[in-house]
Every structure is written in structure tokens, then in C-alpha cells.
Design a protein around this nucleic acid. Structure first.
Lengths: 100, 100
DNA sequence: TTGATATATCGAGAAACCTCGATTACCTAC
DNA sequence: GTAGGTAATCGAGGTTTCTCGATATATCAA
């Protein structure tokens, strides 16, 4: 979880939009059949539909955000749900305050 | 001064190092003939010597940091001095706290 | 086991970024 | 105006990022 990787993960309009959108899933993503937005997160296809890029691109972006520690994923049946990693995000902000 | 541009500017090890180094110029850059480190800033050649990249690259990096609002420049005679734009940096941090 | 659906990974072409040396512009002193 | 030094811009080659479609993997149902 290096600072540089966090900045790189955030250096893309779509990834920023996803991370931001995940703060209020019901407002920013179409509903999903199963899985609670807040408890479980948002599934890839719902995110894909919202951002309008290909499935592979969105899946890769989510992996990037996860590697940077900004989101966490949970597999439930055939779906993977992504939600913000609030604890880590707060840690990143603290680091920036001292590091920037 | 868009959030995305700030992240892009910070997505480079050298630019991060420059911005950080400018917090304590006398500790991180070789002395310069004229110009006070804190009052005026650090000149390009001093920064260049410290980071060890070409003059054109460093000049470009400084321009990037300035476009992102993270540093400010002042021309004094043949030299251009760069210093941190603390006010803007604080503003960026505030924005991140709400935006991230 | 076969089929259907969700997600992840792979390979490739286009765009952006990194970095350099060369050139240009700027400033000062003669 | 010429010369010398500082900084900014330009052009180019190498690397990374973006984004896609195709393929592979995972899960569940029949």
C-alpha cells in the first residue's frame, strides 16, 4: 500500500468516479438482484453498467483500486461485490496530511 | 486545479520527492548563489542537481506541479524559484477529505 | 456433465507519460 | 549587440496506461 500506488490508482477519471460512487450505491448504480448495497457492496456488472466501459476494463479497474487498498471485495456465489475500504481510506488521508 | 490533475501530478516518484523536499529546502537541495530558500524558493538548477535528471525533465516536472497548484514560481533575474503553495496544498487536502 | 451467467485474465493497438538531447527564449554583463 | 548562463520548449524513442474483444475460470442449475 505505497503512497505512489494510491495516487496512480486515483489518476483516472473512471476509477475516481467508481470510488466516489460507492459512497452512495443506491444513488449511483442500478439495482442488483441479490446482495445488499451497504452490507455486501456493488457487483461488477452493476458498476459496469453505470460507467459504460467494457466488462474487462471495469474488472481491471476494480482490481487496481483493491491493490491500492481503497476498496475490498467479497465473493458471493457467482458475484463479486465491491465496497469502499473506509478504514484504509482514512489511513490514506492521514498519511497524505503528513506526507504531502 | 482539478482533483484529477492533482493526482496525476503526484503519480510520479520524482515529483513527489520534489514536493516533499521543498518542505525543508536547506536539507534537501544544494545551496544556491542568490535567492533565499524560504522567502523565494529553490531554483531549477539546484533542484535538478538534487534529483539527478535532465534539466528539461525537471523543468517540465515543475511546470506540472505548478499547473496542479501545488507549487508557485517566481522569476528573479535569470533564475526561476519554486516553492510549495501551502495554501493550495491545504485546500487540496480539505477537498480530498470530502471528495475521496 | 452440459449450459448459462458472472467475473478474471490475456493479447493487442492506441494514447499518454517518461526522459533525453537539441534548440529556443530570456536575462545580465560587457 | 555579443557572450554566457539559466530556464522553457520541442521532437523523438522507450515505457506505461487505457481500452477493447476473446478466452479462461468460477458458480450454479438442470
Amino acid at each position: 500500500m505505497k503512497t505512489l500506488d494510491v495516487f496512480k490508482a486515483l489518476s483516472n477519471e473512471t476509477r475516481l468516479k467508481i470510488l466516489n460512487g460507492l459512497r452512495e450505491p443506491e444513488k449511483n448504480f442500478p439495482p442488483q438482484d441479490e446482495g445488499d448495497f451497504h452490507l455486501d457492496g456493488v457487483c461488477v456488472s452493476s458498476i459496469q453498467e453505470a460507467v459504460g466501459l467494457s466488462q474487462s476494463t471495469v474488472s481491471g479497474y476494480l482490481a487496481t483500486l483493491e491493490r491500492a487498498g481503497l476498496v475490498r471485495s467479497k465473493r458471493m456465489g457467482p458475484w463479486t461485490y465491491y465496497k469502499r475500504n473506509e478504514e484504509n481510506i482514512r489511513r490514506v488521508l492521514k498519511a497524505l496530511e503528513e506526507d504531502l
